[in-house]
Design a binder for these strands. Structure first.
Lengths: 342, 342
DNA sequence: TTGTAGGCGTTATCAC
DNA sequence: GTGATAACGCCTACAA
């Protein structure tokens, strides 16, 4: 049994510059300079320091260093529930981009965010900015960020606040165009499968998609003849389609997102044996990867993920360069993606 | 134009305890105590301090505080390429759990991780631990963590290293059982759609799945009659299925993961007009959400996501409690999920 | 080129 | 209860 095994079970502290300095027989400043590009330091001494650092396993502690820096390169990312694949895909792309930009994302995810106390701790971090995927907690986060002067960028919903930037897509325009397309194809009996109406903070976003449909229908003197709330999931879409089609005869089933449309499609084809689009049109929203798969080949509206991420990154840079600038609201287009289900 | 607009475009520094102390007419220590549970402090004074803190937007800076703490509650999470939905689902659940456990995950994501320099910076953070989703960079990360005494937990591949914990599923057992099932159903002509063979670090994981098939076949004096490498994506699976079926007559098309199986399924049904499972069996691996959707109803093998995450969290706690303990290798079962495609 | 002496924002310790 | 004071680990003038 060696001494190694008798080390107390306490977390070993990080190796510090002081330890390296002592081992290498130099001053702590010298160690610091060895890791500072362009600092004056004898080449030979530098080499020795780096060698000792490698041997001991030393890296400058960025937390300590950040105390005197004005930026930490850390960005907090608050994801929503991630119930939809679109959110997942968007967050994934966003995280990749942030990494590529040299930012370190701290991700706060899932239902637990709804619990204010958990997110509260996040404000102890000296983050450069926060990026919020619209969903729960919006109001609280917006207010807290304002109070703490933390730059905030929101996506998925638009926020009109002093210095908050936001990016969202023109939901209503998308569903309006979609509905027009269906009307041209002769559809007249429209049903709408909605997102969860209880989530108050997503209210605007949800309502917009529905309103686009209603506006297009109203222009022809029509209206939605059946609606069900659901939860943005495949299973939810399937159940909602069943509920609607049990009671109503419709020829167009519009869904507030793609996952629900996939579920509805599945129900219509496999359980009812109906043909799409011959007997019934089924459409989604977002244009997630899956929508283009041959088995779905879903007619939908594109929620331009990459474009949104681009804007978020751009807004982040601009906001960091000029924290005092006015809040910007970016609306991106929601283009029609006509495929095979309309 | 007010003074507000003339604020220089410099990032406003965080409000400090000193500022609060001055404003409230107390010492810095008092401010610190106001935020320390169970510290001696006059109730009235505390109330005043908290009020001023709220007004000024002050929160104790956890980076500064962490200098004297032995733990930061920050955990680095290195995700792989996230090309497969399974990875996405697993990481999502993991992040949620970490948040719930009071840990703050810094996520390093995507292809950029393959670039060593980007990950290098991560080691400047005084993280409590690193969690690595098997994939690129394994070796480098394992070595660096060992050198820096950073607890490391790997999932997806098993690592036999001094103090590294790892969790993986019994890939070979899963595909072995699956192949047996197919053999019982009378299948004899097996094809295998593999993951990317170029990714050396995933070699073990990939090989295991294939070996399970080979072993079961060998017991009947059979072998795989056709193979294609692909990339774990739907499109990749579709293309590989096409390539294989153009040249070979097979009655069982086994895929290294579910997404590829979905693609293969799509090709077989829609392009060839074959019936599954009557004409041909198609199977996957992982049992992602999608696999159970009626339109796929995929026979597959369960990669027990939640169980894996449970183990990761457990190993994290145990490792933090006892950093010196020996590395643990956890293997979880890969149960058969017989559905409708075999 | 080098070492010493601050200061970054916090908490813990110590006298009062 | 309270306020100085000393760490925590780092970087950077400043003086040598």
């Amino acid at each position: 049994m060696t001494d190694e095994n008798n080390i107390p079970a306490k977390p070993r502290r990080r190796v510090t510059a002081k330890a390296v300095a002592e081992r290498a027989g130099v001053s702590r400043s010298a160690v610091s300079r060895a890791f500072t590009k362009g600092a004056y330091l004898d080449q030979e001494k530098k080499a020795r320091i780096l060698e000792v650092a490698e041997e001991l396993g030393y890296r400058p502690n960025v937390f300590a260093a950040s105390l005197q820096a004005e930026s930490t390169n850390i960005v907090a990312v608050l994801t929503g529930n991630m119930k939809s694949h679109f959110d997942t895909e968007l967050v994934e792309e966003l995280l990749g981009r942030l990494t590529a930009e040299g930012k370190w994302p701290i991700v706060v995810n899932g239902e637990k965010v709804a619990n204010a106390s958990s997110i509260e701790g996040l404000f102890g971090f000296p983050v450069d900015a926060m990026i919020l995927r619209g969903g729960s907690m919006d109001k609280y986060v917006v207010e807290s960020c304002a109070k703490l002067h933390i730059p905030l960028i929101v996506s998925g919903v638009t926020v009109k606040s002093e210095r908050v930037d936001s990016v969202a897509c023109r939901n209503a325009d998308g569903t309006y165009a979609l509905t027009q397309l269906l009307l041209e194809k002769g559809r007249r009996r429209f049903a709408w499968i909605d997102g969860p109406t209880r989530v108050v903070t997503q209210e605007a976003h949800r309502r917009e998609r529905r309103q686009g449909v209603e506006r297009a229908l109203a222009e022809r003197g029509l209206e939605i003849i059946a609606t069900r709330d659901s939860d943005y999931t495949y299973e939810g879409g399937l159940a909602a389609a069943e509920a609607i089609l049990r009671e109503q005869d419709v020829d167009a089933l519009l869904c507030a997102n793609d996952a629900m449309a996939a579920g509805a499609l599945s129900y219509v084809r496999e359980n009812l044996g109906l043909k799409v689009p011959e007997d019934l049109a089924v459409t989604g929203f977002d244009d997630i990867d899956m929508a283009s798969w041959p088995c779905f080949n879903l007619t939908t509206v594109q929620n331009p993920k990459s474009e949104i991420v681009d804007h978020i990154i751009r807004l982040l840079h601009e906001r960091l360069a000029n924290p005092a600038k006015a809040g910007e609201v970016v609306l991106v287009g929601a283009d029609l993606v006509p495929r095979g289900t309309h």
